[in-house]
Amino acid sequence: MITAERKPLEELIEYIKPFKRILLLGCNECVTVCAAGGRKEVGMLASGLQMARLKSGTSVEIQQHTIERQCDPEYVEELASMIDGADAVLSMACGCGVQQIAMRYKDKPVFPALNTKFMGASERQGVWAERCQGCGDCLLGITGGICPISRCAKQLMNGPCGGSTTGKCEISEDVDCAWQLIWDRLKTLGLTERYLDIIPAKDWRTGGGSGPRKIIREDLAE
């Protein structure tokens, strides 16, 4: 899933400063699951913004709404009348959602309320960790199911580096050394010989190195 975190309130207050009527828009997909932009957070932010405004002696009209997915045009289409009634939109979706809104409602200012962080997995209640950087050429099949690109600070293809001590990365004791994890996993799988294979230098073109990427399913595409 795509993970995100709310921007500092100060930044958001600044965005909406010129406006009187705001549509605060949640998304019921990834950002709900990572507790950043679902109905609950929409409510929290609406209240926070309102208070900040009140404190500075003004007030703002905030309409709260959450749709199924902000990254799909059909869902976004349904917002037309609501957006009409607003001076600006503050989107609590990931960057994809924000752009979808901006694309569709060209004359309406749209602001992101979140910082989109990474593609990650849920470790336990309230904790999400980065797992994928969308390199477009998945290596997990040869690295024992552990991604050296998203989980090694240096993105080493043939690790570990000298900074790995007792299984931890030198950047922080809280970060596991991905290559230690890979080694441990290969050992469990009885595939340690695979560790000796040299992974060639990565071709980053699939990972966005040659511009914005697109997927076209010819059978589906209209």
Binding site: K40, G43, M44, S47, G48, Q50, M51, L54
Partner: peptide
């Protein structure tokens, strides 16, 4: 007690 209940009370 929801965080929302608390912020609403302050609001």
């Amino acid at each position: 007690v929801d965080s929302l209940h608390i912020v609403k009370a302050f609001e």
